[in-house]
Design a protein around this nucleic acid. Structure first.
Lengths: 234, 234
DNA sequence: CACGCCAATTGATAATTCTCAAGGATTATC
DNA sequence: GATAATCCTTGAGAATTATCAATTGGCGTG
């Protein structure tokens, strides 16, 4: 969907079904001019799998909306190992810490080919002064992030490897009714769920054998939500 | 420290060394009147170990400042088990989700005898409208919570039981240079660090044998920070 | 003081996961 | 198409932790 279409959608007061931006409740209450301010086609760009959006410590001049794809936020631990602390999904925002931090707090790396819109922090701040809406939405957003993190923490710290992987796949497929799901590398699964790549591999192999998942391509699969849900509960 | 003293401290532009409220950067930029608005002696109260400040789903009419003691925020998992998702320490705020949520998101239970000041959400909101400071401080606070949660997640999901317990004790003793530290029940340690009470007990016993910790009373101990730090790194 | 209750401890065994290692599959590059 | 590089898979044994079970110790109540 190009910018003209978005413009059109906006004019007609109808939300775009295809464009990830529509999910950004954050910007839902902006008027036409303000929306144009933050969403300019010239600020759109894409990154391939494995590319870095920003590194921890980089100057945080932009926040990003994720129009499509998947991002991982990673931290390096003292012992050199890697932990994925959060997954950013299509329609969400990346790098919000820029709003009161001069530097990004994590490494943001592309997990699944991603399209972004880059928004200068200065513009957000300007908007924030003018619009009480945005400030309110931002607060709501922080809370949502915190609560999601709490849920994630609870899940991560409970159950066997199988259950955690099942939960991850359900989480990744959330929103896709057909059960389509991106399958990360075994290493990434390990970094997300606190297990070794070998364990991740064995669990995936087991799920394949049992028919809980079916590979469509190397990193795309269809999951059987009922089976996985059942596994999570048990 | 009673309200007259606080009043006095405030007038003299000096921060109170005893009162936990002084740590609340959140309210640092308020003027005298605004401070009085949120901090009234009549709103102070205490709770004993095990008592509940609020339950998940309760109407969230107040936020609370923790003047002394320790609070745990707990979630019940699908299988009925309990996870402690966050620890609130002296000088921090509890229940901030009240600001844009009609209900509390967790159960808040007293871990170590606690003294609170209760602040009506309506007053915070009123203040928020008037003072751009507070709004800014709040944003900074959300971020801090999120970042802390990320660090906690990383620690929780890495290393052996011994290392996680060592990390917890260092975390709890943070700020006390003498290494004084509250020791939670084995069950609570388990709920925080994703291990069984038996494992928690064994680790504590091991630490005692090795001289990493020394019990002062049933739930109070002195830790050897160097030893525990070393253990965390290894 | 005896009693019950709850938290903590300790032991033996089982289950899960990690570690180390080797081989297979896939993808990228020239 | 050949080669290298990377990721994935699989196996066997070791290490960590969970589970089950029994006991101890502390604490308040009658």
């Amino acid at each position: 969907m190009d910018s003209k279409q978005i413009d059109n959608v906006w004019k007609h007061g109808k939300k775009c079904e295809q464009c990830a931006i529509r999910n950004l409740v954050l910007f839902a209450d902006l008027d036409k001019n303000d929306f144009d301010l933050i969403h300019r086609p010239i600020n759109e760009f894409e990154l391939a799998v494995g590319e870095t959006l920003y590194n921890q410590g980089d100057c945080s001049d932009f926040i990003f909306t994720l129009r499509s794809g998947l991002i991982k936020l990673v931290s390096y631990l003292a012992d050199g190992s890697v932990r994925i602390v959060r997954i950013i999904k299509k329609g969400d925002v990346v790098g919000l810490e820029a709003l009161d931090n001069k530097h990004y707090l994590h490494h943001a790396v592309v997990l699944e080919e991603a399209a972004f819109c880059r928004i200068p922090v200065s513009q957000i701040k300007e908007l924030n002064e003018r619009s009480p809406h945005l400030s309110k939405q931002l607060t709501a957003r922080w809370q949502r992030v915190i609560f999601d993190a709490d849920v994630w923490l609870s899940q991560l710290s409970s159950g066997f490897a199988k259950q955690r992987v099942a939960y991850l796949l359900l989480y990744l497929s959330d929103g896709n009714d057909d059960g389509e799901c991106y399958l990360p590398t075994r290493e990434d699964i390990g970094a997300m769920l606190a297990m070794t790549t070998e364990t991740a591999s064995r669990v995936i192999a087991d799920f394949k054998r049992k028919g809980f998942i079916k590979l469509v391509s190397a990193h795309q699969l269809i999951i059987n939500k009922e089976s996985l849900n059942e596994l999570c509960e048990s």
